[in-house]
């Protein structure tokens, strides 16, 4: 084949891009370990092993070269996404199931990286969320609240056997702030009362706020290095902030303030690391904004009126389905044409 122009390239690569994203997750990981212990590290490693096995088998089955594709690092982002979403001390099979499902059904069955319509991490997470709702809501309490600092070995024991000698599991698990708000409302506790619980600190969800700030730091760096587009965080966070402010203003007893919404759950993870996945989101500049706003709306709706405490995964998957449609209607005006 004739080698044609251009003969130069800006030296960017998928691998470099994904490496940057991984790097940007590091601050959040450290903060997570500080508040919740070593659980997430173990979960992440479990995910990595699952990925290596599943990916090699799938690539072999699909007759693809294993090395270049396994080293593109996109799957590692999927693992990180799932690891941050599940309870850090949950049983080992939870993440193994989620990662396997994400890689097999979310990626390879569609033809591999670049061809998958759904965000693999969110698909995997949604799968276990529906299949094992109890396990997913059993979150670990922050160390400072439970007063139990688990050693690495203890954590391993907990993840693989489900209990640790001499420690009552109920002591170290509890509901997430989002969950407490939701259950609180059903039992007649107002939001303002829930905000007085120990898992809140200065009206902000304790531990979660710090982790979310760490996500923001990493995200800003990604924005700066052009690894992600501004449309995602701006559209997504802007929508949630706006909706939360409006509803909180109307009825502060039922609707949490914007600050609680923005700093609880995986909002910042979603804003900078999940919905920014290029493969499954819109490609046009305007489309990206529409996509992000759509997810923002859905997340707020599910949080307040849905059956699940947090709805990021469902919101993302739903908008993934709309992408071809969004792309079609947001195509930019070609130079020299009237529209």
């Amino acid at each position: 084949m004739i080698n044609t122009s251009p003969f130069i390239h800006d030296n960017n690569s998928v691998q470099k891009l994904m490496f940057k994203v991984q790097l940007a997750l590091l601050p959040a990981l450290i903060v997570h370990v500080y508040f919740f212990g070593y659980g997430i590290v173990i979960q992440w490693l479990l995910g990595l092993i699952t990925f290596l096995i599943v990916e090699s088998i799938m690539l072999k089955l699909r007759n693809r070269p294993v090395l270049p594709f396994i080293s593109d690092l996109t799957a590692v982002i999927t693992i990180s996404g799932i690891a941050f979403c599940i309870p850090p001390n949950s049983s080992w099979w939870l993440i193994v199931t989620a990662v396997s499902f994400a890689l097999i059904f979310g990626k390879h069955l569609y033809g591999g990286m670049g061809y998958n319509p759904f965000n693999p991490a969110m698909l995997g997470y949604a799968f276990i969320l529906i299949s094992f709702p109890v396990e997913i809501t059993q979150w670990s309490l922050p160390i400072a609240i439970s007063g139990q600092e688990l050693t690495f070995i203890n954590t391993l024991q907990l993840i693989f056997t489900g209990n640790i000698p001499n420690i009552n599991i109920d002591q170290i698990t509890g509901a997430t702030p989002l969950n407490s708000m939701k259950t609180g409302l059903t039992t007649g506790t107002t939001i303002l009362q829930t905000l007085n619980l120990p898992i809140f600190d200065n009206n902000l969800p304790y531990a979660w706020t710090q982790i979310n700030i760490a996500f923001i730091l990493g995200g800003l760096w990604l924005l700066f290095t052009r690894a992600i587009n501004w449309q995602y965080p701006i559209g997504f966070l802007g929508t949630i902030a706006l909706l939360a402010t409006i509803f909180h203003y109307i009825d502060p007893h039922t609707y949490a303030p914007a600050s609680v919404h923005l700093f609880s759950g995986g909002i910042m993870l979603a804003a900078f690391f999940i919905i920014t996945d290029p493969v499954t989101s819109s490609t046009t500049p305007k489309g990206k904004l529409v996509f992000a706003i759509g997810i923002g709306c859905l997340v707020y709706i599910i949080r307040n009126w849905g059956a699940f405490p947090d709805g990021i995964s469902f919101a993302v998957l739903l908008l993934n389905m709309c992408v071809p449609f969004i792309d079609q209607y947001t195509a930019p005006r070609v130079v020299g044409y009237k529209k």
Binding site: N12, V14, L17, P68, G114, P278, T283, T284, K288
Partner: peptide
């Protein structure tokens, strides 16, 4: 590599 639909080209 396969296109990751990043939109850089656009």
């Amino acid at each position: 590599m396969p296109c990751i639909r990043c939109g850089e080209c656009m």
